[in-house]
Structures are given as structure tokens and as C-alpha cells.
């Protein structure tokens, strides 16, 4: 994986380069947008890490121009402007994700991998959280390596939750993914599926569980040790 890093603070860019290299990325560092643009013309990068406040221009404006040129390289914006409105603006102008300074190396690596895993990028076929895995093509669920049987709806539910493991998935999103237009969805259908999946996971001694956030949705997270 080859990454283009545009960052004008030398110490920060060298630290980021070190961390990313240890994480398995090949990193080219530029401190000017002009130089980065020249590099993009000759090298096919898998990911761009972009700082916003650069000496020769604003990263956001550059990104807008870059996207207009119908380039679809994933872009992760790394910025000090952790403003509430910046986030929206960044995503509107074509950034795939947004990381506010300061950040830890683990987080940077996780975000880079997440951006690369997005649809359009390489498809990962096995989703995992804790000791639970799901093969998205064979639809097989396993806990600690041993396969368990789960009906289609529960497998679909687990897949959505696994894809956003650790985050709350709103009810509306789950209902939309799980039930077709023609399906009659009773108000408790989702609860019923969740509770069956929860029991199935705990019966198989899974170390993750489906947690309810009332009024919002569900999330998959490590089970609290009994």
C-alpha cells in the first residue's frame, strides 16, 4: 500500500512516516501541495493523507479541485482545525474521513485501514470482532474458530453490526438492511432477532455481545466479563 502524505510540519511528518511504515505502508512525504500534485501524476497512490493548512494553499480548496478532476483515490484529511463545521465541509468536498490532531498512531493506522476497506477499495471477505468471524461470501459465522448455525436474518444483522463494530447502528439502518419492501415488519421484529442473536453468541461463548442503546439502536462490543 502506497501512501502520499502532505504535511508541512517536518517532525510530525517524519513521526507519521515511521508509524505508517511499521504498519506496512510505503510513505512518500511532501510539504507542498504543488510537489504532491506532481507526484500524483507519476505514481498511483492507494491513499492520500492531507493536512489542511499548508504553506502554498488550503488543503480543502485543493481537494475540491482534485475531486473535480474525477480522481477517486481515498483521501484522509488530517487537520488541526477540529471545528464542528470543518468536519462536514471536509466530507462534502470529497474527503473520505477526517482525523483531528492530536491523534495516536494506532488511531491513524485504524483510520487508514478503514478508509481503504470502504466499498470501492479492496473487499475484505472475513469480518471479525473479538473471537467472532463472519465470511461475507459463504455467510458462515464462527466463534473462536468453531462454526455456529445462524438463520439468514441473524447473519445479516451480525454482518451490519460487525461492519460498524464498536459504533451504534441506528434502528432505521438495521431495519432497512434486514427487511425488504414486501416484508411485514412488526414493531418487535428487530428486538426479537437481536435477542436471539445475543443468546446464540453467548451460548457459543463469544467475547462480544449486542448492546442496546434505547431510543437509538444497537452496537456490537466486547462482552463484560461475568
Amino acid at each position: 500500500m502506497r501512501v502520499l502524505l502532505v504535511e508541512d510540519n517536518e517532525r510530525l511528518s517524519s513521526l507519521m512516516r515511521g508509524g505508517l511504515s511499521r504498519g506496512g505502508f510505503t510513505v512518500d512525504v511532501f510539504d507542498l501541495l504543488e510537489d504532491a500534485e506532481a507526484a500524483l501524476d507519476t505514481v498511483d497512490y492507494d491513499l492520500i493523507l492531507l493536512d489542511l493548512g499548508l504553506p502554498d494553499g488550503d488543503g480543502m480548496d485543493w481537494l475540491k479541485r482534485f475531486r473535480r478532476g474525477s480522481r477517486d483515490v481515498p483521501v484522509l484529511v488530517v487537520t488541526a482545525r477540529g471545528g464542528l463545521t470543518d468536519r462536514v465541509a471536509g466530507l462534502d468536498t470529497g474527503a473520505d474521513d477526517y482525523l483531528v490532531k492530536p491523534f495516536e498512531m494506532d488511531e491513524l493506522l485504524a483510520r487508514c485501514r478503514a478508509v481503504l476497506r470502504r466499498p470501492g477499495a479492496a473487499l475484505s471477505t472475513v469480518l471479525a470482532a473479538g473471537n467472532v468471524t463472519l465470511d461475507t461470501t459463504s455467510r458462515q459465522v464462527a466463534v473462536a474458530g468453531s462454526q455456529i448455525d445462524a438463520p439468514r436474518r441473524e447473519t445479516d444483522l451480525l454482518e451490519v453490526l460487525l461492519r460498524r463494530s464498536g459504533q451504534v447502528v441506528p434502528r432505521a439502518v438495521l431495519e432497512e438492511r434486514l427487511y425488504g419492501f414486501d416484508d411485514e415488519v412488526t414493531p418487535n421484529a428487530l428486538e426479537a432477532h437481536v435477542s436471539r442473536l445475543r443468546r446464540r453468541l453467548s451460548d457459543a461463548a463469544a467475547d462480544v455481545t449486542v448492546h442496546t442503546v434505547r431510543g437509538v439502536g444497537y452496537l456490537l462490543r466486547p462482552a463484560v466479563a461475568p
Binding site: N9, M16, P102
Partner: peptide, 9 residues
């Protein structure tokens, strides 16, 4: 924030 980022890394 930039120096904080440097420190943290």
C-alpha cells in the same frame, strides 16, 4: 494542535 500531535506520536 500540531505540536501536541508531534508530542503524542
Amino acid at each position: 494542535r500540531t505540536p501536541l500531535a508531534v508530542l503524542l506520536l
